[in-house]
Design a protein around this nucleic acid. Sequence first.
DNA 1: AAATCGACATGACATAAGTCAAGTTCCAAA
DNA 2: TTTGGAACTTGACTTATGTCATGTCGATTT
Lengths: 253, 253
Amino acid sequence: MGTLKRIDVNHLKVRCSECNLRELCFPHGMNVEDISSMDAVVKQFKPIHKNDYLYRRGDAAVAIYAVRTGCIKTMTESTNGDEQIVGFHMAGELLGLDGFADGIHACNAVALETSSVCKLPIDQLEALSQKLPGLQNQMRRIVGKEVSNDHKLLLLLGKMTSEERLASFLLSVSSRMLERNWKEDEFNLSMARQDIANYLGVAVETVSRLFATFQKQGIINVDRRHITILQMEALKAMVGDCVSTNKKPGCVG
Amino acid sequence: MGTLKRIDVNHLKVRCSECNLRELCFPHGMNVEDISSMDAVVKQFKPIHKNDYLYRRGDAAVAIYAVRTGCIKTMTESTNGDEQIVGFHMAGELLGLDGFADGIHACNAVALETSSVCKLPIDQLEALSQKLPGLQNQMRRIVGKEVSNDHKLLLLLGKMTSEERLASFLLSVSSRMLERNWKEDEFNLSMARQDIANYLGVAVETVSRLFATFQKQGIINVDRRHITILQMEALKAMVGDCVSTNKKPGCVG
DNA sequence: AAATCGACATGACATAAGTCAAGTTCCAAA
DNA sequence: TTTGGAACTTGACTTATGTCATGTCGATTT
């Protein structure tokens, strides 16, 4: 194809300071100088294809990763082989904290579609944070976000009906689409029904049926993985959004 | 009682270096000098009584806490008031990471019985970690442990039957008893059936029935909150311990 | 000792969601 | 273009677990 300059994608320079994901990603909330010093730490990582592993349970945990494009799922595995998806990571979102306990990844990380990530080596992050006090705050925020996400999922799995779970899932995807300046009411899911079911702790058939029901109720439109949300408020009401529904007196929302 | 010296328990000096919980607690794995420098950071905290809050959702998160005696539960709360217990924290275990995301606690922390804790102010931990590189590692390990615990609970809530959940819970308590050099097969639960049920994502009645069933099967003995484990292996088999049961060929354990 | 109350247990019954078994539909390989 | 198969849907049926109602136990107060 003509005389295009060859680019070695494994050694691309990436700069947080020039990245359009920076407000969603690791640097969110950091000051400009600190973000610039991140540039030396962040490494581009080769693209990974659908079903490829970014890391596996048991691998040495040497870095945390930021999704640039695509979507990656992380899942825990029990001794008897059951898997539970604990997160779907979209552009700008971080993964890899599951290796912090003992330096060994406790999760598998698998691409749902062709994806690219930035690699942030832990030792370099640590070295840098000795110089930048702000970076420690940042790490704390990131860790806190992970814990908070896990807790939301615990609440979902522990207390919600399957209907509430799917509504909650759709709202989560929707709000993350919005954060990325994509449409909040029309998007393509990266994950298979099976993945959604696993994540939500229900059977695939239940997910199928609920999609059908929601569609019948005119709340969403489903065309395979293409979702259109027609009644956002109806979804919010399902998960118990006390602001819009005023279900509970005294709820401060 | 005679001429006992008065002790103001709110200002007791506490030293990690002299604490018999240090191998279970924050200092686990740290070197002796680093542990000594922790002494300046750790504050004793007044004892809290049963049903008292150590902190509430919405409180400013200024510290992490280490349980000295007793047991504390942490729970998330949904917008519509549902609560999910995300952890029971025994002596030597840490809590408070739920405030890392934005400096505001996302959980409630409530004592299950009269308990005492050490307070580790975040700003002081941070200042100290600028001097001690080992402390950053330590924080990472602690965070990793929290994430790993949450993931275990996600697996439990997402994939296990109620029987597996209770077996898993009993084994978890048992192994933590053992860590503390208490009996692993005979202990008192600090939590009510209701708390266990909430934590495991099942109804109280289910917990009651399962306790009864396990007892009928001769696996455990139950006398109110006093539990005796009679067949540890049977419990392990329930949660799919592939080492002792060899259920699955090719399982590496 | 009686009364009270919360924690826990147990039986009867209801139901949300799982399982099983066909079916589509769509995409990708031949 | 055909073929194969994975992903998904839908219906019929089953079941684990929740809900409701009642009863017991044990600690604490009167």
